[in-house]
Write a protein that binds this DNA or RNA. Structure first.
Lengths: 341, 341
DNA sequence: TCCAGAAATGTTAGCGCTAACATCTTTGGC
DNA sequence: GCCAAAGATGTTAGCGCTAACATTTCTGGA
């Protein structure tokens, strides 16, 4: 910076002012400085800046340690929004999905001196750790069902899981289904619990029967295991006529298991997924599902964090933002046999 | 740090020594300092440390701006390895996959003062930009076919694409296929070109016919579009008996298109993918594919970067590490009709 | 017992930047 | 043409840490 200053014939402070867009700099001086910067290929030292300002212009993202579709895309959305706002992004992913792992990953971010943290790990344990951590930086949690209340330093953002689950369930009921199963997603995932809760509620509202299956995880393998049970139940004459899977991969496993048993989807049983994974339109049959606005969710999280940092009140409700997913009807759903006969 | 020093009754320098594991500190002093740190909940300021040492202990990852299976998992592997070595990780993803976008994302990392960069963006343009950038930090590029030679500050790591492509092609030939098509992946992706090149070479070695189809991208939708052409060609009696798709999603689209046209896989035509996406075992039929060691690739990249930073020579060959993918045979491949009759 | 050398600790300076204040130039109204 | 206020620039100090050197304390052999 001193070099730039001497080339431009000004003091280093003036260079700093130009760099920080301070108002009181004459236009020709600014140009001279800018030119000197260009000429020398000067880049400001971020560490020194951070030391002097006590801000790192870095945000941390705490995320799950796998390539799950939802979280991965949310992170991408955040990353892009953060860069646009001039922030750097540091990612810390959970090695283990328990409290200790969360603490570790969180500590890693705090050690780094991030200016804010966004949590994209919709797990009950993680949310708890974060809420209790009382960090001294603003935190935005992407979660559909927060345990704590938002504060001056903690805010929530979500895609409305209940809305999506309700849309699916009501749609199936409208088609005429009266035995609607749900495959609950991985244990402790907040979204899994939310989808299940709302499915159950809609069922009760309409006095429709439901049966609950539980998947070990979010993958097709987990869905396949459940699918074999479902097929057994159908063969025994007490199976559902429609199955709402907690996500698309589970639905894929389901489709596969049903196909193996010679069951036709949607003729014998309807299947619905959740997330609208890129491939789901090409499953056999094409999957009816719920599209979640992950990219937008990431952007919302980032703007909520900016608002927090700026000390803005940020809305009255429980959530800084609630985005609505969208039901995508494809070929894996149809009225049940009974209704068609 | 001054507070810690006074609580422990030592100078701030001694505290620094304890923190940095310097040898010449008496055991009881060390304990006293550690205790004071604990008591005060002191965390070292990273910006100050970076300023004093001229090292940020942060590495940057330059990656593609989407949730592609391969890159995403490689990044995860890097992230985990980096944390284990005490590095922080900053991610910068490509907004646009052209030279300008790459320059931008790279600049973002450099501005941050990272100690090293790993590039997980197997695109020709990106590789070029990186190789020509002449940064003053070590760089590791995850790419199967580097344009430049490795230097003191530039090293390559890859999963051996040719090995995988060769395994697939030879396997199909062994099954008896004599018309083996390849669906080339997204343009400008190095891996797509590598797979294509090797497929072509093996075909020539065995004097087997091949036809090349081109997918717009890596998605099932792209595979579907190609699949319709393939089905047309088969219907016209001049189609392939086996199709090697550049990745699993393309293969899924292919499967879907063939299914729509009433073609049986593998009876009428065999299909092979690449990557071994988590779901591929549950496609209909279960997909024969090539498993890539993405996690290990990430770890290798990180250790190559560490070696570079430490100024170690790092191997004689062109690559600091070359990992072998593995052929996974499932149900989507079989001998061609002619061979079975 | 004494002293050299090693081990342990303290002191000083400086990393590159920005905030705060000090100083020098303008500008515009009388 | 002069002066006050605003605008532009310069000077100084300090952010929290580590490296380098300075000093003190210990150790063991003559």
């Amino acid at each position: 910076m001193a070099d730039v200053a001497s080339v431009a014939g000004v003091s280093h402070q003036t260079v700093s002012r130009v760099l920080n867009d301070h108002p009181n700099v004459r236009e020709d001086t600014r140009q001279r400085v800018l030119q000197a910067i260009e000429q020398l290929g000067y880049r400001r030292n971020r560490a020194a800046r951070a030391l002097a300002t006590a801000r790192t212009s870095t945000i941390g993202i705490l995320t799950v340690g796998n390539s799950n579709f939802g979280p991965a895309n949310t992170v991408l959305g955040i990353e892009s929004a953060a860069r646009a706002e001039g922030y750097f992004v540091s990612v810390s992913s959970l090695e283990a999905s328990d409290a200790a792992g969360a603490q570790l990953a969180l500590g890693h971010l705090v050690d780094q001196g991030v200016d804010g943290i966004i949590v994209v790990a919709p797990l009950a344990e993680v949310a708890q750790v974060v809420e209790r951590a009382s960090l001294n930086v603003p935190v935005v949690v992407v979660a559909a069902n927060p345990l704590a209340e938002p504060t001056d330093a903690l805010r929530y953002v979500c895609a409305d899981q209940r809305f999506g689950a309700r849309a699916v369930t009501e749609y199936l009921i409208e088609l005429g289904h009266r035995r609607i199963a749900h495959v609950v997603g991985q244990e402790n995932w907040i979204d899994a619990a939310e989808r299940r809760t709302e499915w159950r509620r809609v069922l009760e509202e309409h006095a429709v029967q439901g049966r609950e299956y539980r998947a070990e995880g979010w993958s097709a393998a987990d869905g396949y295991a459940v699918g074999r049970q479902v097929a057994d139940d159908i063969a025994a004459g007490q199976g559902p006529t429609a199955v709402f899977a907690a996500n698309d991969y589970i639905a894929l496993g389901l489709l596969r298991a049903l196909w193996e048993r010679g069951l036709q989807v949607p003729e014998d049983v309807s299947v619905v997924g959740f997330d609208d994974v890129e491939s789901s339109a090409f499953y056999i049959p094409a999957l009816t599902t719920v599209r979640q606005p992950f990219g937008a969710l990431g952007k919302s999280a980032m703007s909520a964090l900016s608002a927090l940092s700026a000390g803005e009140p940020g809305g009255e409700g429980r959530f800084a933002a609630t985005l609505e997913p969208e039901l995508i009807v494809r070929a894996s759903t149809a009225p049940p046999r009974a209704a068609r006969d």
